[in-house]
């Protein structure tokens, strides 16, 4: 904690405190503007609950996919097993820099009814890609995968190559080395990354709303309420969503910490 009379730590505490207030105060204001009865009404509506369910579950699926595909990529990038790995890493980070609506439009052009891919999808599965939960997962996956890949890569980076070399010399083929040594040691970092990935996916709006206005995720529902003029309802839904997300976040982090120590 802050040492008495030590100006350096006081300054740091001050700067940090300003930042924390910057995060907390807008939310406190938002929450205090809501009426309790409004909250109670809104939380019981089927469309609202469905929106929450959509958001949480689809984000979980997107995170799962991000980790499933992202961890192998992270391993290859970490061990420099691909040529020009720096370039591919930059590509992985690209979704972070692209404005979300552009992500949505790009995915729309790539997978919508007019494209080759979309038409193929249409013919095989007899439904359009746009406006489905699959599209939502795609949008969520696109914007959140950099978090999964980066976290996994950093976790692998922290494992000394020596350990993998020893495992190999003891007779372990590459798959064995990965599953018995690298992955268990990287698990903490990957799990932490998974939480961030989920958080990013659940909050995505710009890309999702272009690809799939319906079925509605929570951010889209809130926006819909806002733009049709019922600001109070939008605020109420937002506050409830916020608390739910915070709870999930805290629970996941606690679980992660228990896993690390236990």
């Amino acid at each position: 904690m802050v040492k008495k009379g030590n100006w350096f730590f006081l300054l740091f505490g001050f700067l940090g405190g300003v930042l924390l207030l910057f995060i907390i105060l807008p939310f406190v204001t938002l929450c205090s503007n809501q009426s309790l009865e409004n909250l109670v009404t809104v939380v019981q509506e089927e469309s609202v609950l469905l929106a929450f369910l959509n958001s949480f579950i689809l984000a979980a699926i997107a995170s799962f996919l991000a980790i499933l595909f992202g961890t192998p990529l992270a391993y290859l990038l970490s061990r420099r097993m691909v040529p020009i790995s720096g370039f591919w890493h930059a590509i992985v980070d690209l979704p972070l820099a692209v404005p979300h609506s552009i992500v949505g439009i790009a995915l729309l052009f790539f997978l919508g009814g007019n494209s080759i891919f979309g038409a193929l999808f249409n013919n095989i599965f007899r439904f359009g890609f746009v406006g489905t939960r699959i599209a939502i997962v795609a949008a969520m996956l696109f914007v959140s995968l950099p978090y999964a890949v980066n976290a996994a890569k950093e976790a692998f980076d922290r494992i000394s190559v020596r350990i993998e070399q020893v495992a190999a010399s003891l007779g372990a083929p590459p798959a064995s080395v990965f599953f018995r040594v690298s992955l268990p040691l990287a698990k903490g970092g990957i799990s932490s990354g998974a939480i961030l990935t989920w958080a990013r996916a659940v909050s995505e709006f710009g890309a999702v709303v272009v690809l799939a206005y319906h079925p509605m995720t929570a951010p889209v529902k809130i926006w819909d309420e806002f733009t049709t003029g019922t600001l109070e309802r939008a605020g109420a839904i937002a506050v409830i969503f916020l608390f739910l997300c915070l709870s999930v976040f805290i629970v996941l982090r606690l679980l992660l910490r228990k896993q690390k120590n236990g």
Binding site: I57, L58, A60, I61, F64, R133
Partner: peptide, 8 residues
């Protein structure tokens, strides 16, 4: 999760 997804 996947099951819920499909059910929903």
């Amino acid at each position: 999760c996947l099951l819920l997804f499909f059910i929903a």
